[in-house]
Design a protein around this nucleic acid. Structure first.
Lengths: 122, 122
DNA sequence: GCCCGCCACTTGCAAAAAACAAGTGACCTT
DNA sequence: AAGGTCACTTGTTTTTTGCAAGTGGCGGGC
């Protein structure tokens, strides 16, 4: 992005400046797969993100154009968040992280084609 | 892992509890691709990780068995850090993150087969 | 034996970020 | 007019980070 100083030229380091924390990719996950597109729906995610963090992360995602924020109605105005193409292109990243967590930490595995989550052992 | 309380059953959430920060995956990157295996070599990484953070992250990686720490010599004792199989299996995650950062943030792209980094535009 | 340096950290402290609870304001329903 | 919903914001405490400096084991040179 124009005007931003990355800490290095490494693509991994750059990506982590945007999504390198405990929450951002969970928000992307919910937007991508779980049909959550309002602030409140995202707030009710399984992990219980604090609202100030959610607010700040959404702003960052919008700033980096991974997410668009738009009013889907007036009177009263209500906002919906949607992934942009750049945001949607994080899906392979999410899938790899999910696969690793499934293999090594016993977490569930979501199948985007069926929309079902298969629970694992542990 | 036995005894650990994950915040949710989601594989992504679980994985982010271990590697969800700005530094951990950079350490894994250096161990995986850049032949850095001592504390000092890792400390001299491109991004300049603070030593207390490096120390703490290495401990976490060892605790989760993604990394092994072993003395490679006595007199004086010197330690080397190596990825375990679980650690090495993060490579696809790293590659996806790198690809995304290359496409969207103009970072370089490393080719593990040749060991060369191709620099991008921006 | 004593000083110097290297390596692998640890410690102390200030600054930033995260967590938690509560509050705000626009608008709508009753 | 009172109460509710949604989308946040604000205030406060706790935790984490970043930075600089210090520590301790060991070896080598003099």
């Amino acid at each position: 992005m124009a005007g931003h100083d990355f800490r290095s030229g490494c693509s991994i380091a750059r990506t982590l400046e945007i999504v390198g924390d405990k929450w951002t990719l969970l928000i992307v996950r919910d937007l991508m797969w779980h049909g959550k597109q309002t602030f409140q729906a995202l707030e009710e995610s399984a992990e219980g993100v604090p609202t100030n963090i959610l607010s700040e992360r959404l702003k960052r995602l919008v700033k980096w154009r991974l997410v668009r924020r738009e009013a889907y109605q007036k009177h009263p105005v209500r906002y919906a968040y949607h992934l942009t193409e750049a945001g949607k292109s994080l899906e392979p990243v999410l899938l790899q992280i999910m696969n690793w967590g499934h293999e090594h930490l016993g977490g569930g595995r979501y199948d985007p084609t069926t929309g079902k989550t298969l629970k694992a052992a542990r």
